[in-house]
Design a protein around this nucleic acid. Sequence first.
DNA 1: AAACTGCCAACTGTCGACAGTTGACACGTT
DNA 2: AACGTGTCAACTGTCGACAGTTGGCAGTTT
Lengths: 217, 217
Amino acid sequence: MTPPVPLHLSLAGQAVDVLREQVLTGEIPPGSRVNEVEVAQKLGISRGPLREAIRHLASEGLLTLVPHRGAFVPDASPEDVRALFELRTALECAAAELAASRRTDVDLVRLQDVCAESRRNYKAGQPFPYRLDLAFHQTLIEAARSPYIAEQVRLVQQRVVLLRSALDDDPPHQHASMDDHDELVRAIADGDAARAATVMRRHLSRVCAQMITSLTH
Amino acid sequence: MTPPVPLHLSLAGQAVDVLREQVLTGEIPPGSRVNEVEVAQKLGISRGPLREAIRHLASEGLLTLVPHRGAFVPDASPEDVRALFELRTALECAAAELAASRRTDVDLVRLQDVCAESRRNYKAGQPFPYRLDLAFHQTLIEAARSPYIAEQVRLVQQRVVLLRSALDDDPPHQHASMDDHDELVRAIADGDAARAATVMRRHLSRVCAQMITSLTH
DNA sequence: AAACTGCCAACTGTCGACAGTTGACACGTT
DNA sequence: AACGTGTCAACTGTCGACAGTTGGCAGTTT
């Protein structure tokens, strides 16, 4: 029944998926260590594939390796957050510019749909789910049609998820984010690359500040 | 005495250095495969550490992995070059802006030194060595003081080195590059972030075009 | 009591061997 | 002769075991 093999990712690949999930959800908390034999047994695999998975996640920035000590889940300082957002800003501003000049009409519809769903959710009293924020930025990246930038944005967003601590809880911030998204879509709809970049920069600057304050309190 | 251990990199780490060198110099030509047992024997190590090294280089984009087939040195299409330079432009334009606003005086001196040495070299009839071009961009990145951007630029530059095919041979292009560098330094000296970004964008656009033409001919 | 020294357990780094898959070659069929 | 099939060698994926290093703990000294 199950497809013979194609679904059957290598053990290392499966381990990457499981570990990534556990790190991003905080099931393996920041600062803690990853014991190779212990985790390998828990996953029912040998240490070889698990090591491969660990190194892979380390290359994505989700783990940090210390020689002869093992792999640790990094916990971030405000300075780290600031530096990481400088990278994110560089990438996503460029993506916003490209999206403004390359977008198709279906790209535009997709972006508007995500924004609309966010509004609906919000008005229904629900918080602005991080899921929809991710979806918006993801859709924008696809509209930019720049595979290398897209890949890097994906990695950076992952690291942001790793550091984010309850960003969903601040209604004024949520409202501002949704406004930013709407304004971004308008700029992209107009094909105004410069304005798209400007709005994106302001948006990420706000998000970064919010993260740092919620990190230090 | 040699420090007790720190010099003693892990076998995997040593393998990474050796392999990276061989890939970047073309000693292992693009399109060719990396045989695990063969290379492991040649390096005098086991397959374990070598596999780790291969995966690491793959995460840097210097090798591409194919399940059950092995690791290959990627050879690029013009479309790849264009997409890669979109990423490079995003990163280095941001770096140029940051450098313009954060540079210290010694940063400025270093940049001017590199430019001066390039000029001297060029007037002496020598070609503009790629080494100095790398040095310039490296110095600019350091002046930007943004560690995450710096790391990504390093990785992208590496991939550019991998694709570049005799860029040193076109004198007009070299001249234009040196002019671009000089103008960049002036913008950074003035603290003019917007102009620095503009010049960097034009510079990389030129380099990209040059690479694509020299790739297709 | 504080500091130093030597030992020990736990864990990572490395190795060699086995199992499963892939692509190619040879053979047989139409 | 072209095509389909079966077999095989080569290589990657995975495993279990050994060696070297690290950090901590107990014992000793001042």
